[in-house]
Nucleic acid binder design. Structure first.
Lengths: 153, 153
DNA sequence: GATGAAAAGTTGATAGC
DNA sequence: GCTATCAACTTTTCATC
C-alpha cells in the first residue's frame, strides 16, 4: 500500500515537471486509460507522496533578481535562542529557505530581494534585529546554474 | 501590458501556494466571474510571469531524506573549466540547485540523497570526478526550518 | 476590462472484467 | 488493477456591455 511501482514513479516524474498534464495525457503516455491514472494520482496524494501543486514564477519578472546565501552562527546555543531564531525566520518573507546545519555554521538561508540596496535593508532592519546572532556571512549568486523543485525518483 | 495590478498579484500569490485552485474559486475570492480570472492567468503565463506548474513531492516519502550543502572552489578559473563544471553539474540528478557565487567559494550546491552512504558515493564517484575542483566542503541539514517555492510579491 | 452563456474537454464515480 | 461509460464540473471561447 505504500510501495511505488514503476507506473507510480513515472506518474510522479511527469507531475514534477508539469502538473497541468491531464490524467488523459498521462494515460496515453503510459498506454493506459485515464481511470487508473486518476486513481493512482489520488492515492499518491492521499498517501503523502504529493504534498501540493504550485505555480513556479520567474523571479526576474517579479523583481526578485538578487539571490543571496547567508550563513549565520549563533552566539549561544541554548534551546530557547535557537527556537526563537527559527520562529522569527518563518515570518521573514524575503527568506525562501532556511536550514539548521551540522558543523561550524548554524544556519544557511536563501534570500530573494530586488536589489543589493534591499538586501542591505533586510540585513540591517530585519535579520540583525534577531537576538543572539554571532557571525553573519552573506554571498551573492552571480549565475544560477541549476534550480529545480524536482527530486530524482 | 507588463505591469501587474493588485488583482494579478493576488492571483499569483494564490497560484504559488495552490495551483489546483480553479478559476471559479479564485474568482469568488476576488468577487469576479471566472472569465477575467481565466484571461489574466493566461496572460500571466504568456508574459512569462508563470514559468510552469509542478507537483511538490515529500522528500521523506521518496527516500531523499538527506540534504547536503556542498561548497566548491575551483583550482583554476579559466572559462573552459568553469563552463565544463556547469555542464557536468546539469547531468547529476542528485543536485537540485547549483549557484555560481561571488566571493571565496565558487559554487554552492544543494544535494538530495537517501543516506550518508549514498552521499559518500556521490562525492567519490561523481562529484570528485569533475576536473579542476580545488576545495570541496560538505555540510548536512539537521533540520529544515523553512523551504518554499514561493516568492514574495 | 467585465459579464454571461454555450461548446469542448476533464474529472470523478460506478459497473463489470 | 484494468476498461468503458457517463454525469458533473471546468475550461475556453465569444458575443455583448
Amino acid at each position: 500500500m505504500d510501495k511505488l511501482d514503476q507506473t507510480d514513479k513515472t506518474i510522479l516524474r511527469i507531475l514534477q515537471t508539469d502538473s497541468k498534464k491531464t490524467a488523459k495525457e498521462i494515460a496515453s503516455m503510459l498506454n493506459l486509460t485515464p481511470s487508473p491514472v486518476y486513481e493512482r494520482i489520488r492515492r499518491l496524494e492521499n498517501q503523502g507522496f504529493i504534498k501540493k501543486y504550485v505555480a513556479i514564477l520567474d523571479k526576474k519578472r517579479i523583481e526578485r533578481s538578487v539571490t543571496a546565501i547567508c550563513q549565520v552562527s549563533m552566539r549561544y546555543h541554548d534551546e530557547t535562542f535557537i527556537d526563537e531564531f527559527e520562529e522569527q525566520i518563518q515570518d521573514l518573507k524575503e527568506v525562501q529557505e532556511c536550514y539548521h546545519m551540522a558543523g561550524q555554521v548554524d544556519f544557511i538561508l536563501k534570500i530573494h530581494v530586488k536589489s543589493l540596496e534591499e538586501y542591505h535593508e533586510f540585513v540591517r532592519y530585519k535579520l540583525s534585529k534577531i537576538k543572539n546572532i554571532g557571525v553573519l556571512n552573506s554571498t551573492f549568486v552571480i549565475k544560477e546554474i541549476k534550480h529545480s523543485s524536482e527530486y530524482y525518483i
